[in-house]
Design a protein around this nucleic acid. Sequence first.
RNA 1: GCCCCUCUAGCUCAAUUGGUCAGAGCGUCGGACUCUUAAUCCGCAGGUUCUGGGUUCGAGUCCCAGGGGGGGUACCA
Length: 489
Amino acid sequence: MTDAIPGEPSAPADGTGGAPPASAPYRFDPTATAAHLRATHDHLEAGEETGITVTVAGRVMLHRPQGRLAFATLRDGSGAEVQLFALAKVTEQFDAFGRISLGDWVGATGEVVKTKVGELSVKVSSWTLLAETRRGFGDKWHGITDVDTRYRQRYVDLWANPESRTTFLARSRVLSLTRRWLEDRSFIEVETPVFHPIPGGALAKPFTTHHNALDLDLFLRIAPELYLKRLVVGGFERVFEIARVFRNEGLSTRHNPEFTMLELYQAYGDYGDAMALTEELVAHLATELHGTTQLTYGGRPLDLTPPWRRASLTDLVEEHAGVHVDVRMPVEELRRIAREHGVEVEDDYGPGKLLLELYEKTTEAELWGPVFVVDYPKEVSPLARDHRELPDMVERFEGIVAGRELCNAFSELLDPVEQRARFEDQARLKVAGDDEAMVVDEDYLRALDHGLPPTAGLGIGMDRLVMLLTDTASIRDVILFPTLRPEQD
RNA sequence: GCCCCUCUAGCUCAAUUGGUCAGAGCGUCGGACUCUUAAUCCGCAGGUUCUGGGUUCGAGUCCCAGGGGGGGUACCA
Protein backbone atom coordinates (compact mmCIF):
# COMPACT_ATOMS: atom_id res chain seq x y z
CA MET A 1 0.00 0.00 0.00
CA THR A 2 3.00 2.22 0.42
CA ASP A 3 6.11 2.66 -1.57
CA ALA A 4 8.40 -0.19 -0.73
CA ILE A 5 11.77 1.42 -0.52
CA PRO A 6 14.53 -0.96 -1.53
CA GLY A 7 17.14 -1.48 1.09
CA GLU A 8 16.38 1.50 3.28
CA PRO A 9 13.51 2.52 5.49
CA SER A 10 11.25 5.03 3.81
CA ALA A 11 9.55 6.42 6.90
CA PRO A 12 9.83 10.17 7.30
CA ALA A 13 12.07 11.33 10.09
CA ASP A 14 9.10 12.68 12.01
CA GLY A 15 7.96 9.16 12.63
CA THR A 16 4.77 9.37 10.61
CA GLY A 17 3.94 6.72 8.12
CA GLY A 18 5.39 3.27 7.85
CA ALA A 19 4.29 0.04 9.48
CA PRO A 20 2.21 -0.55 11.39
CA PRO A 21 -0.30 1.87 9.92
CA ALA A 22 -2.02 4.25 12.27
CA SER A 23 -5.22 2.40 11.52
CA ALA A 24 -3.90 -0.96 12.69
CA PRO A 25 -6.04 -2.34 15.49
CA TYR A 26 -4.47 -2.98 18.86
CA ARG A 27 -5.71 -6.55 18.82
CA PHE A 28 -7.38 -8.90 16.42
CA ASP A 29 -9.28 -12.13 16.85
CA PRO A 30 -9.01 -14.69 14.06
CA THR A 31 -11.54 -17.48 14.39
CA ALA A 32 -9.95 -19.95 12.00
CA THR A 33 -6.59 -20.86 10.56
CA ALA A 34 -5.90 -21.61 6.95
CA ALA A 35 -4.97 -25.16 7.86
CA HIS A 36 -8.26 -25.58 9.71
CA LEU A 37 -10.27 -24.26 6.78
CA ARG A 38 -8.48 -26.60 4.42
CA ALA A 39 -9.10 -29.54 6.70
CA THR A 40 -12.79 -28.81 7.17
CA HIS A 41 -13.91 -27.35 3.86
CA ASP A 42 -11.77 -28.91 1.18
CA HIS A 43 -14.68 -31.10 0.10
CA LEU A 44 -16.81 -28.16 -1.06
CA GLU A 45 -17.93 -28.17 -4.67
CA ALA A 46 -16.81 -25.41 -6.99
CA GLY A 47 -19.13 -22.47 -6.53
CA GLU A 48 -20.53 -23.82 -3.25
CA GLU A 49 -21.23 -21.45 -0.38
CA THR A 50 -21.44 -22.47 3.28
CA GLY A 51 -23.12 -19.63 5.13
CA ILE A 52 -20.27 -19.96 7.64
CA THR A 53 -18.49 -16.73 8.52
CA VAL A 54 -14.89 -16.83 9.70
CA THR A 55 -12.14 -14.37 10.46
CA VAL A 56 -8.63 -15.13 9.28
CA ALA A 57 -5.33 -13.27 9.49
CA GLY A 58 -1.94 -13.67 7.94
CA ARG A 59 0.51 -12.41 5.40
CA VAL A 60 -0.35 -11.76 1.75
CA MET A 61 1.76 -14.04 -0.41
CA LEU A 62 0.09 -13.43 -3.78
CA HIS A 63 -2.26 -10.76 -5.00
CA ARG A 64 -4.44 -10.72 -8.10
CA PRO A 65 -6.62 -7.64 -8.40
CA GLN A 66 -8.94 -7.92 -11.32
CA GLY A 67 -11.18 -4.95 -11.82
CA ARG A 68 -14.35 -5.46 -9.82
CA LEU A 69 -12.85 -8.58 -8.24
CA ALA A 70 -9.64 -9.15 -6.34
CA PHE A 71 -7.90 -12.22 -5.00
CA ALA A 72 -5.19 -12.49 -2.39
CA THR A 73 -3.46 -15.59 -1.08
CA LEU A 74 -3.04 -15.43 2.68
CA ARG A 75 -0.56 -17.57 4.61
CA ASP A 76 -0.88 -17.77 8.37
CA GLY A 77 0.83 -19.35 11.35
CA SER A 78 -0.63 -22.73 10.51
CA GLY A 79 1.67 -22.75 7.50
CA ALA A 80 -1.24 -23.24 5.13
CA GLU A 81 -2.72 -20.77 2.68
CA VAL A 82 -6.24 -19.68 2.00
CA GLN A 83 -7.50 -17.35 -0.69
CA LEU A 84 -9.25 -14.09 0.09
CA PHE A 85 -11.91 -13.31 -2.48
CA ALA A 86 -13.02 -9.69 -2.63
CA LEU A 87 -15.87 -8.30 -4.69
CA ALA A 88 -16.73 -4.68 -5.23
CA LYS A 89 -20.36 -5.35 -4.31
CA VAL A 90 -19.54 -7.29 -1.12
CA THR A 91 -16.25 -6.09 0.28
CA GLU A 92 -15.84 -2.95 2.33
CA GLN A 93 -13.04 -0.66 1.16
CA PHE A 94 -12.79 -2.66 -2.02
CA ASP A 95 -10.55 -0.18 -3.82
CA ALA A 96 -7.99 -0.30 -1.05
CA PHE A 97 -8.04 -4.10 -1.14
CA GLY A 98 -6.85 -3.88 -4.71
CA ARG A 99 -3.81 -1.93 -3.58
CA ILE A 100 -2.56 -4.41 -0.98
CA SER A 101 1.11 -5.26 -1.39
CA LEU A 102 2.76 -8.64 -1.20
CA GLY A 103 3.95 -9.12 2.33
CA ASP A 104 1.28 -7.04 4.02
CA TRP A 105 -0.47 -8.55 7.01
CA VAL A 106 -4.22 -8.62 6.57
CA GLY A 107 -7.12 -9.71 8.74
CA ALA A 108 -10.37 -10.51 6.95
CA THR A 109 -13.89 -11.64 7.79
CA GLY A 110 -16.23 -13.35 5.39
CA GLU A 111 -18.03 -16.46 4.26
CA VAL A 112 -16.23 -19.71 3.52
CA VAL A 113 -16.83 -20.50 -0.13
CA LYS A 114 -15.31 -22.17 -3.10
CA THR A 115 -14.94 -20.04 -6.18
CA LYS A 116 -16.32 -21.05 -9.54
CA VAL A 117 -13.02 -22.64 -10.41
CA GLY A 118 -12.87 -24.49 -7.10
CA GLU A 119 -10.45 -22.53 -4.93
CA LEU A 120 -11.28 -22.54 -1.23
CA SER A 121 -11.74 -18.90 -0.25
CA VAL A 122 -12.99 -16.47 2.30
CA LYS A 123 -15.39 -14.14 0.51
CA VAL A 124 -14.34 -10.96 2.22
CA SER A 125 -16.99 -8.74 3.70
CA SER A 126 -14.70 -6.67 5.89
CA TRP A 127 -10.97 -6.57 6.30
CA THR A 128 -8.22 -4.60 7.96
CA LEU A 129 -4.58 -3.97 7.34
CA LEU A 130 -2.61 -5.31 10.32
CA ALA A 131 0.84 -4.33 9.11
CA GLU A 132 2.26 -3.14 5.86
CA THR A 133 5.58 -4.05 4.33
CA ARG A 134 8.05 -1.38 3.43
CA ARG A 135 10.64 -3.77 2.15
CA GLY A 136 10.47 -5.80 -1.00
CA PHE A 137 9.28 -9.26 -0.20
CA GLY A 138 11.54 -11.31 -2.38
CA ASP A 139 10.87 -13.25 -5.53
CA LYS A 140 7.45 -14.83 -5.20
CA TRP A 141 8.52 -17.79 -7.25
CA HIS A 142 12.13 -18.40 -6.21
CA GLY A 143 11.84 -17.20 -2.63
CA ILE A 144 15.08 -16.09 -1.01
CA THR A 145 18.09 -18.18 -1.94
CA ASP A 146 20.89 -15.91 -0.82
CA VAL A 147 22.23 -17.67 2.27
CA ASP A 148 23.46 -14.47 3.82
CA THR A 149 19.95 -13.06 3.77
CA ARG A 150 18.49 -16.34 4.97
CA TYR A 151 20.74 -16.42 8.03
CA ARG A 152 20.77 -12.73 8.87
CA GLN A 153 17.12 -12.04 8.15
CA ARG A 154 15.50 -15.23 9.31
CA TYR A 155 12.20 -13.39 9.51
CA VAL A 156 12.34 -13.18 5.72
CA ASP A 157 13.57 -16.73 5.23
CA LEU A 158 10.77 -18.20 7.32
CA TRP A 159 8.09 -16.58 5.19
CA ALA A 160 9.78 -16.91 1.85
CA ASN A 161 11.00 -20.48 2.15
CA PRO A 162 8.50 -23.03 3.43
CA GLU A 163 11.19 -25.67 3.92
CA SER A 164 12.95 -23.41 6.37
CA ARG A 165 9.76 -23.07 8.34
CA THR A 166 9.31 -26.84 8.26
CA THR A 167 12.80 -27.42 9.57
CA PHE A 168 12.38 -25.13 12.54
CA LEU A 169 8.99 -26.53 13.37
CA ALA A 170 10.66 -29.94 13.38
CA ARG A 171 13.28 -28.62 15.75
CA SER A 172 10.60 -27.37 18.08
CA ARG A 173 8.91 -30.76 18.00
CA VAL A 174 12.16 -32.58 18.69
CA LEU A 175 12.71 -30.52 21.83
CA SER A 176 9.13 -30.95 22.95
CA LEU A 177 9.04 -34.69 22.26
CA THR A 178 12.36 -35.17 24.01
CA ARG A 179 11.10 -33.45 27.14
CA ARG A 180 7.92 -35.49 27.19
CA TRP A 181 9.75 -38.75 26.55
CA LEU A 182 12.20 -38.15 29.36
CA GLU A 183 9.53 -36.98 31.76
CA ASP A 184 7.59 -40.17 31.03
CA ARG A 185 10.67 -41.98 32.31
CA SER A 186 10.78 -40.01 35.55
CA PHE A 187 13.48 -37.56 34.50
CA ILE A 188 13.05 -34.04 35.79
CA GLU A 189 14.19 -30.99 33.84
CA VAL A 190 16.47 -28.61 35.70
CA GLU A 191 18.33 -25.40 35.00
CA THR A 192 21.92 -24.93 36.11
CA PRO A 193 24.14 -21.87 35.83
CA VAL A 194 25.33 -20.51 32.52
CA PHE A 195 28.01 -18.52 34.35
CA HIS A 196 30.67 -20.81 35.74
CA PRO A 197 33.46 -19.63 38.01
CA ILE A 198 35.42 -22.64 36.74
CA PRO A 199 34.85 -24.00 33.23
CA GLY A 200 34.31 -27.72 33.42
CA GLY A 201 32.56 -30.81 32.17
CA ALA A 202 34.23 -30.89 28.79
CA LEU A 203 37.51 -30.19 27.07
CA ALA A 204 36.98 -26.92 25.24
CA LYS A 205 37.96 -23.28 25.17
CA PRO A 206 35.46 -21.13 27.07
CA PHE A 207 34.18 -17.62 26.56
CA THR A 208 34.99 -15.32 29.42
CA THR A 209 33.06 -12.48 30.95
CA HIS A 210 33.12 -10.39 34.08
CA HIS A 211 30.67 -9.55 36.81
CA ASN A 212 31.22 -6.00 37.99
CA ALA A 213 29.60 -6.02 41.42
CA LEU A 214 31.46 -9.14 42.47
CA ASP A 215 34.53 -8.12 40.49
CA LEU A 216 34.56 -11.70 39.31
CA ASP A 217 35.72 -13.29 36.10
CA LEU A 218 33.21 -15.84 34.89
CA PHE A 219 33.09 -18.37 32.09
CA LEU A 220 30.12 -19.20 29.92
CA ARG A 221 29.52 -22.89 30.41
CA ILE A 222 31.07 -25.39 28.04
CA ALA A 223 28.91 -28.15 29.56
CA PRO A 224 26.42 -28.46 32.42
CA GLU A 225 27.84 -31.83 33.49
CA LEU A 226 29.37 -31.08 36.87
CA TYR A 227 26.30 -29.21 38.12
CA LEU A 228 23.95 -31.95 37.02
CA LYS A 229 25.95 -34.60 38.85
CA ARG A 230 25.85 -32.42 41.96
CA LEU A 231 22.07 -32.72 41.68
CA VAL A 232 22.28 -36.50 41.60
CA VAL A 233 24.33 -36.27 44.80
CA GLY A 234 21.46 -34.19 46.16
CA GLY A 235 18.99 -36.95 45.45
CA PHE A 236 17.53 -36.00 42.08
CA GLU A 237 18.12 -39.45 40.67
CA ARG A 238 17.12 -38.68 37.10
CA VAL A 239 17.80 -35.19 35.82
CA PHE A 240 18.20 -33.58 32.44
CA GLU A 241 18.91 -30.16 31.06
CA ILE A 242 18.52 -28.87 27.54
CA ALA A 243 21.45 -26.55 27.87
CA ARG A 244 22.77 -23.84 25.61
CA VAL A 245 26.52 -24.20 25.84
CA PHE A 246 29.29 -21.99 24.52
CA ARG A 247 32.63 -22.95 23.09
CA ASN A 248 35.15 -20.49 21.80
CA GLU A 249 36.17 -22.47 18.76
CA GLY A 250 35.87 -22.42 15.01
CA LEU A 251 32.70 -22.39 12.98
CA SER A 252 31.78 -24.99 10.42
CA THR A 253 28.77 -26.76 8.99
CA ARG A 254 28.79 -28.77 12.22
CA HIS A 255 29.91 -26.16 14.74
CA ASN A 256 28.30 -23.01 16.07
CA PRO A 257 29.86 -21.19 19.03
CA GLU A 258 26.63 -21.55 20.98
CA PHE A 259 24.72 -24.75 20.62
CA THR A 260 22.21 -26.87 22.44
CA MET A 261 23.16 -29.96 24.35
CA LEU A 262 20.88 -32.40 26.07
CA GLU A 263 22.59 -33.80 29.12
CA LEU A 264 20.99 -36.35 31.38
CA TYR A 265 22.05 -38.36 34.39
CA GLN A 266 20.45 -41.54 35.60
CA ALA A 267 21.35 -42.89 39.02
CA TYR A 268 21.88 -46.62 39.35
CA GLY A 269 22.63 -46.93 35.63
CA ASP A 270 25.79 -47.46 33.63
CA TYR A 271 26.88 -46.62 30.11
CA GLY A 272 25.01 -49.62 28.73
CA ASP A 273 21.80 -48.02 29.97
CA ALA A 274 22.84 -44.77 28.28
CA MET A 275 23.25 -46.60 24.96
CA ALA A 276 19.81 -48.15 25.22
CA LEU A 277 18.30 -44.81 26.15
CA THR A 278 20.00 -43.03 23.26
CA GLU A 279 18.91 -45.40 20.55
CA GLU A 280 15.38 -45.57 21.89
CA LEU A 281 15.04 -41.81 22.13
CA VAL A 282 16.38 -41.20 18.64
CA ALA A 283 14.19 -43.94 17.18
CA HIS A 284 11.20 -42.45 18.96
CA LEU A 285 11.88 -39.00 17.52
CA ALA A 286 12.36 -40.38 14.02
CA THR A 287 9.12 -42.29 14.25
CA GLU A 288 7.18 -39.31 15.55
CA LEU A 289 8.54 -37.03 12.82
CA HIS A 290 8.66 -39.39 9.88
CA GLY A 291 6.70 -42.48 10.85
CA THR A 292 9.78 -44.64 10.39
CA THR A 293 13.31 -45.17 11.60
CA GLN A 294 14.54 -45.75 8.05
CA LEU A 295 15.70 -42.32 7.01
CA THR A 296 17.99 -40.89 4.38
CA TYR A 297 20.60 -38.28 5.12
CA GLY A 298 22.31 -36.40 2.33
CA GLY A 299 21.05 -39.00 -0.13
CA ARG A 300 22.44 -41.94 1.86
CA PRO A 301 20.25 -44.41 3.71
CA LEU A 302 20.35 -44.16 7.48
CA ASP A 303 18.67 -46.87 9.51
CA LEU A 304 18.13 -45.74 13.08
CA THR A 305 16.29 -48.86 14.15
CA PRO A 306 17.55 -50.16 17.51
CA PRO A 307 19.68 -51.85 18.53
CA TRP A 308 22.59 -49.95 17.04
CA ARG A 309 25.89 -51.65 16.49
CA ARG A 310 28.28 -51.61 19.45
CA ALA A 311 31.95 -51.87 18.61
CA SER A 312 35.01 -51.12 20.67
CA LEU A 313 37.25 -48.28 19.66
CA THR A 314 40.22 -50.60 19.31
CA ASP A 315 38.27 -53.10 17.20
CA LEU A 316 37.15 -50.30 14.90
CA VAL A 317 40.71 -49.06 14.50
CA GLU A 318 41.73 -52.59 13.59
CA GLU A 319 38.83 -52.77 11.14
CA HIS A 320 39.66 -49.52 9.37
CA ALA A 321 43.39 -49.03 9.86
CA GLY A 322 44.28 -52.71 9.78
CA VAL A 323 46.39 -52.56 12.89
CA HIS A 324 45.89 -54.05 16.32
CA VAL A 325 46.40 -51.54 19.09
CA ASP A 326 46.10 -51.59 22.82
CA VAL A 327 46.47 -48.80 25.31
CA ARG A 328 48.96 -50.95 27.27
CA MET A 329 51.40 -51.15 24.38
CA PRO A 330 54.69 -49.32 24.90
CA VAL A 331 54.21 -45.68 24.09
CA GLU A 332 57.03 -45.77 21.53
CA GLU A 333 55.26 -48.48 19.59
CA LEU A 334 51.96 -46.62 19.61
CA ARG A 335 53.74 -43.49 18.47
CA ARG A 336 55.35 -45.41 15.63
CA ILE A 337 52.01 -46.91 14.56
CA ALA A 338 50.38 -43.50 14.65
CA ARG A 339 53.13 -41.97 12.51
CA GLU A 340 52.90 -44.84 10.06
CA HIS A 341 49.26 -43.94 9.57
CA GLY A 342 50.05 -40.31 8.93
CA VAL A 343 48.91 -39.06 12.32
CA GLU A 344 50.79 -36.07 13.63
CA VAL A 345 51.80 -36.68 17.22
CA GLU A 346 53.23 -34.48 19.96
CA ASP A 347 55.98 -35.70 22.23
CA ASP A 348 53.85 -35.39 25.34
CA TYR A 349 51.05 -37.60 24.01
CA GLY A 350 50.54 -40.62 26.25
CA PRO A 351 49.31 -43.98 25.01
CA GLY A 352 45.68 -43.02 25.49
CA LYS A 353 45.97 -39.80 23.52
CA LEU A 354 47.86 -41.60 20.76
CA LEU A 355 45.15 -44.24 20.56
CA LEU A 356 42.44 -41.60 20.36
CA GLU A 357 44.32 -39.63 17.69
CA LEU A 358 44.79 -42.79 15.67
CA TYR A 359 41.08 -43.53 15.88
CA GLU A 360 40.02 -39.99 14.98
CA LYS A 361 42.35 -39.68 12.02
CA THR A 362 41.92 -43.13 10.50
CA THR A 363 38.54 -44.42 11.55
CA GLU A 364 35.99 -41.90 12.74
CA ALA A 365 35.37 -40.28 9.35
CA GLU A 366 34.83 -43.72 7.80
CA LEU A 367 31.99 -44.58 10.14
CA TRP A 368 28.49 -43.89 8.88
CA GLY A 369 26.60 -45.59 11.62
CA PRO A 370 24.66 -45.51 13.64
CA VAL A 371 27.30 -47.12 15.80
CA PHE A 372 28.27 -46.85 19.43
CA VAL A 373 32.03 -46.58 19.67
CA VAL A 374 32.70 -48.15 23.04
CA ASP A 375 35.51 -47.90 25.60
CA TYR A 376 37.97 -45.04 25.57
CA PRO A 377 41.37 -44.49 27.12
CA LYS A 378 41.29 -43.14 30.65
CA GLU A 379 43.91 -40.56 29.76
CA VAL A 380 41.46 -38.62 27.57
CA SER A 381 38.36 -39.13 29.69
CA PRO A 382 38.81 -37.38 33.01
CA LEU A 383 35.22 -37.72 34.20
CA ALA A 384 34.49 -41.34 33.24
CA ARG A 385 34.74 -44.34 35.51
CA ASP A 386 37.45 -46.98 35.19
CA HIS A 387 36.44 -49.84 32.95
CA ARG A 388 35.30 -52.82 35.00
CA GLU A 389 37.55 -55.17 32.94
CA LEU A 390 40.01 -53.24 30.79
CA PRO A 391 42.94 -51.57 32.52
CA ASP A 392 43.70 -47.94 31.66
CA MET A 393 40.38 -47.70 29.86
CA VAL A 394 37.07 -46.18 30.93
CA GLU A 395 33.42 -47.00 30.35
CA ARG A 396 32.64 -44.38 27.78
CA PHE A 397 31.04 -44.36 24.35
CA GLU A 398 30.32 -42.00 21.54
CA GLY A 399 27.44 -42.45 19.14
CA ILE A 400 28.41 -41.87 15.51
CA VAL A 401 25.50 -41.23 13.18
CA ALA A 402 25.79 -40.16 9.55
CA GLY A 403 29.52 -39.89 9.95
CA ARG A 404 29.55 -37.47 12.82
CA GLU A 405 29.55 -37.55 16.55
CA LEU A 406 26.07 -37.30 17.96
CA CYS A 407 26.61 -38.07 21.62
CA ASN A 408 29.12 -38.81 24.33
CA ALA A 409 28.38 -40.77 27.48
CA PHE A 410 29.87 -42.76 30.27
CA SER A 411 29.53 -44.59 33.49
CA GLU A 412 30.29 -41.67 35.73
CA LEU A 413 33.39 -41.53 37.86
CA LEU A 414 32.22 -41.67 41.46
CA ASP A 415 35.39 -41.81 43.54
CA PRO A 416 36.49 -38.38 44.80
CA VAL A 417 40.05 -39.52 45.31
CA GLU A 418 40.34 -40.81 41.78
CA GLN A 419 38.56 -37.74 40.46
CA ARG A 420 41.06 -35.49 42.24
CA ALA A 421 43.90 -37.39 40.64
CA ARG A 422 42.28 -36.99 37.19
CA PHE A 423 41.76 -33.29 37.75
CA GLU A 424 45.36 -32.89 38.79
CA ASP A 425 46.53 -34.67 35.66
CA GLN A 426 44.43 -32.21 33.69
CA ALA A 427 45.79 -29.28 35.63
CA ARG A 428 49.31 -30.37 34.72
CA LEU A 429 48.35 -30.40 31.06
CA LYS A 430 46.90 -26.94 31.50
CA VAL A 431 50.12 -25.66 32.99
CA ALA A 432 51.97 -27.28 30.11
CA GLY A 433 49.98 -25.14 27.70
CA ASP A 434 46.84 -27.13 26.89
CA ASP A 435 44.20 -24.41 27.15
CA GLU A 436 41.40 -26.92 26.82
CA ALA A 437 42.44 -28.98 29.81
CA MET A 438 40.33 -28.94 32.95
CA VAL A 439 41.18 -27.38 36.27
CA VAL A 440 40.52 -28.76 39.74
CA ASP A 441 36.97 -28.07 40.86
CA GLU A 442 37.12 -28.33 44.66
CA ASP A 443 33.40 -27.97 45.19
CA TYR A 444 32.70 -30.76 42.75
CA LEU A 445 35.14 -32.98 44.66
CA ARG A 446 33.38 -32.02 47.87
CA ALA A 447 30.08 -33.05 46.28
CA LEU A 448 31.57 -36.44 45.39
CA ASP A 449 32.70 -36.74 49.01
CA HIS A 450 29.02 -36.68 49.91
CA GLY A 451 28.47 -39.72 47.73
CA LEU A 452 27.47 -40.05 44.08
CA PRO A 453 25.72 -43.37 43.45
CA PRO A 454 26.50 -45.38 40.32
CA THR A 455 25.28 -43.12 37.52
CA ALA A 456 24.98 -43.14 33.76
CA GLY A 457 25.59 -39.79 32.06
CA LEU A 458 24.78 -38.82 28.49
CA GLY A 459 25.16 -35.75 26.33
CA ILE A 460 23.49 -35.39 22.93
CA GLY A 461 24.12 -32.55 20.50
CA MET A 462 20.58 -31.48 19.77
CA ASP A 463 21.48 -29.31 16.78
CA ARG A 464 23.15 -32.24 15.10
CA LEU A 465 20.26 -34.49 16.02
CA VAL A 466 17.86 -32.05 14.37
CA MET A 467 20.11 -31.97 11.31
CA LEU A 468 19.85 -35.75 11.06
CA LEU A 469 16.11 -35.73 11.45
CA THR A 470 15.53 -32.90 8.98
CA ASP A 471 18.18 -33.94 6.45
CA THR A 472 19.93 -30.57 6.54
CA ALA A 473 23.58 -30.13 5.67
CA SER A 474 24.60 -27.21 7.84
CA ILE A 475 24.10 -26.48 11.52
CA ARG A 476 23.14 -22.97 10.44
CA ASP A 477 20.05 -24.44 8.85
CA VAL A 478 18.80 -25.61 12.25
CA ILE A 479 19.80 -22.61 14.36
CA LEU A 480 17.40 -19.71 13.90
CA PHE A 481 20.04 -17.03 14.33
CA PRO A 482 23.46 -18.56 13.77
CA THR A 483 26.59 -16.71 14.78
CA LEU A 484 27.76 -14.44 11.93
CA ARG A 485 30.06 -11.53 11.56
CA PRO A 486 28.14 -8.33 12.09
CA GLU A 487 27.08 -6.43 9.03
CA GLN A 488 28.82 -3.16 8.38
CA ASP A 489 27.53 -0.21 6.44
C1' G B 1 44.49 -19.51 11.31
C1' C B 2 45.30 -21.30 6.10
C1' C B 3 43.33 -22.62 1.01
C1' C B 4 39.55 -22.33 -2.79
C1' C B 5 34.96 -20.15 -4.61
C1' U B 6 31.61 -16.11 -4.62
C1' C B 7 29.35 -10.82 -4.33
C1' U B 8 25.41 -7.16 -10.78
C1' A B 9 18.09 -3.11 -9.34
C1' G B 10 13.98 -4.97 -3.39
C1' C B 11 14.08 -10.52 -5.16
C1' U B 12 15.72 -14.31 -8.95
C1' C B 13 19.15 -13.96 -12.68
C1' A B 14 21.62 -12.08 -17.88
C1' A B 15 25.72 -9.29 -20.00
C1' U B 16 31.00 -13.26 -26.44
C1' U B 17 37.79 -13.09 -26.11
C1' G B 18 38.10 -6.35 -21.66
C1' G B 19 34.66 -2.72 -26.54
C1' U B 20 27.20 1.73 -25.85
C1' C B 21 25.96 -3.85 -21.75
C1' A B 22 24.43 -1.95 -17.30
C1' G B 23 19.67 -5.63 -19.06
C1' A B 24 15.29 -9.20 -18.22
C1' G B 25 11.47 -11.40 -15.27
C1' C B 26 9.08 -10.77 -10.72
C1' G B 27 8.07 -7.07 -7.06
C1' U B 28 7.04 -1.63 -6.14
C1' C B 29 4.30 2.72 -8.06
C1' G B 30 0.35 4.46 -11.84
C1' G B 31 -3.51 2.61 -15.27
C1' A B 32 -7.09 -1.43 -17.57
C1' C B 33 -9.84 -5.77 -16.34
C1' U B 34 -16.52 -9.35 -12.61
C1' C B 35 -13.76 -16.19 -10.95
C1' U B 36 -8.03 -15.38 -10.75
C1' U B 37 -4.00 -19.32 -9.40
C1' A B 38 3.68 -17.30 -10.38
C1' A B 39 -3.42 -13.99 -13.35
C1' U B 40 -3.00 -11.02 -17.86
C1' C B 41 -2.21 -6.29 -20.51
C1' C B 42 -0.11 -0.99 -20.76
C1' G B 43 3.21 2.60 -18.50
C1' C B 44 6.75 5.07 -14.93
C1' A B 45 10.53 4.65 -11.48
C1' G B 46 14.48 1.87 -9.65
C1' G B 47 22.04 0.39 -10.06
C1' U B 48 28.56 3.97 -6.64
C1' U B 49 28.03 -3.83 -10.80
C1' C B 50 30.49 -4.99 -2.20
C1' U B 51 34.58 -1.00 -1.07
C1' G B 52 39.31 1.32 -2.32
C1' G B 53 43.35 1.41 -5.47
C1' G B 54 45.77 -0.20 -10.18
C1' U B 55 46.56 -1.89 -15.53
C1' U B 56 44.25 -0.09 -20.19
C1' C B 57 42.27 4.32 -25.26
C1' G B 58 38.37 1.56 -22.66
C1' A B 59 36.98 -2.60 -16.64
C1' G B 60 30.83 -5.63 -14.26
C1' U B 61 34.79 -8.47 -16.86
C1' C B 62 42.01 -8.37 -15.65
C1' C B 63 45.53 -7.29 -11.11
C1' C B 64 46.28 -5.78 -5.77
C1' A B 65 44.26 -4.68 -0.91
C1' G B 66 40.04 -4.69 2.26
C1' G B 67 34.86 -6.35 3.57
C1' G B 68 30.54 -9.94 3.57
C1' G B 69 29.08 -14.91 2.48
C1' G B 70 29.90 -20.20 1.15
C1' G B 71 32.93 -24.66 1.09
C1' G B 72 37.31 -27.20 2.66
C1' U B 73 41.22 -27.70 6.19
C1' A B 74 43.29 -26.88 11.09
C1' C B 75 41.76 -26.43 16.07
C1' C B 76 37.58 -28.55 18.17
C1' A B 77 32.62 -32.91 20.91
